[in-house]
Design a protein around this nucleic acid. Sequence first.
DNA 1: AAGCCGGTGTGATGAAAATCACACGAAATT
DNA 2: AATTTCGTGTGATTTTCATCACACCGGCTT
Lengths: 226, 226
Amino acid sequence: MNRFQTALREVPLFNEFSQRELKVIAQAATVRRYEKNEVIIHKLERGDTFFSIIDGRVKVILSDEDGKEFIVDVLKPKEFFGELALLDGEPRSATVVAQEPTEVLVLTREEFLNQLKKHPELGIKIMRVLGRRLRRANQRIESLAFMDVCGRLAGTLIDLAASSGEKQSDGVNVPLDFSRTELANLVGTTRETLTRALRTLQSMGYIKIKKKFVVVTNMKGLEGRM
Amino acid sequence: MNRFQTALREVPLFNEFSQRELKVIAQAATVRRYEKNEVIIHKLERGDTFFSIIDGRVKVILSDEDGKEFIVDVLKPKEFFGELALLDGEPRSATVVAQEPTEVLVLTREEFLNQLKKHPELGIKIMRVLGRRLRRANQRIESLAFMDVCGRLAGTLIDLAASSGEKQSDGVNVPLDFSRTELANLVGTTRETLTRALRTLQSMGYIKIKKKFVVVTNMKGLEGRM
DNA sequence: AAGCCGGTGTGATGAAAATCACACGAAATT
DNA sequence: AATTTCGTGTGATTTTCATCACACCGGCTT
């Protein structure tokens, strides 16, 4: 049981695989390390690799010509990406960047499709994840189409609270592990209006702004503002 | 070989199935008809049915409380919908409405999952479609996040030209089978600004506006405007 | 034919948010 | 310690677009 196999078993996709199967996959897999801000996948490029995060954090972003970027998703250990281009052979649909030093497991297209054929339940698991991502995408579309910046920010904070918030006496503590600019890109606005939107929510008494985190003091209020 | 089976074989998902298998599915399937504007799926409701269009046209929409709607997708015969709620048991993620009198094939959750287990290649096909939809969704997000109304309209017209445009001497003829309001909802704006955006594109010499269609006279120009 | 009505263009107004400009502080560099 | 750099708040200005208001047209009903 080497390092890869241990890593592989951690991935929900493969957690039901037998020792022997893991070994097969492990032989076809490699590990790569990326520095902070290093680009793992370039949008529009061809690529035929499947990635699963061992350690670190990546952001999935869309960007336009003049460098503006929109953060579609932030992925953590055990989550995977790069499967889309594998399924249909089309160019990468988004850019993926390491948000901190990150270690990923890389699978080739052949091995990926190989396993997919051998293990129908793998297909179902991936379908589930694709389904979840499609739902999220629809929600993002909805919020971009219907809500103003404050509403979208409220939604983002609620998401963050759900994924990494810690309940405290005075409310839910939401750590902000990114710059204001990145938070703005997550919400889909500019840094300046993000600042103002934060102040607005604070003046409504829903949140308290700290340097490195936000305390949500009135979750119901936030939800209502969405 | 009854009516259902013929219809089923038309669906790309099932086109490789044997006579016998089609029969099994057909026994579990029913056909439903919907009037124009009838709601087939209500967002947020629970549901455990899978639909495949036999004839007609449906629109997949997101809408907010006060009735504004955003058209995510328009589906035609042989395409399917309703699979998301089946995969994860969550509420419906969007509303689906018949755009014209429409006939659909309905499969129950059990039968759907049943077939999915028996036929791994079905899973792969569905993954492909989910993948394609995810790509489209990302494009929609991109355009909402980065482009102005004119750019989004240009993109929509290009899409429409690709899917149902007819090449002519003076350009590509794009039929508009929906009202201006619907086109606006497809672009993600209001009827009024859609009108103005159409005029803008026309005054740039990229398109010619007709009642029931638009002639794209300068595709390159349109693409540049995106 | 008169009248009604849904779909449509168009002008005026206002609100939201992008953009531009700059000041400030904290961390990093030398 | 001095200075550069980066992330950040904040004010002023401008742009885009939603909204409101209304006029117009073609097809309907009666």
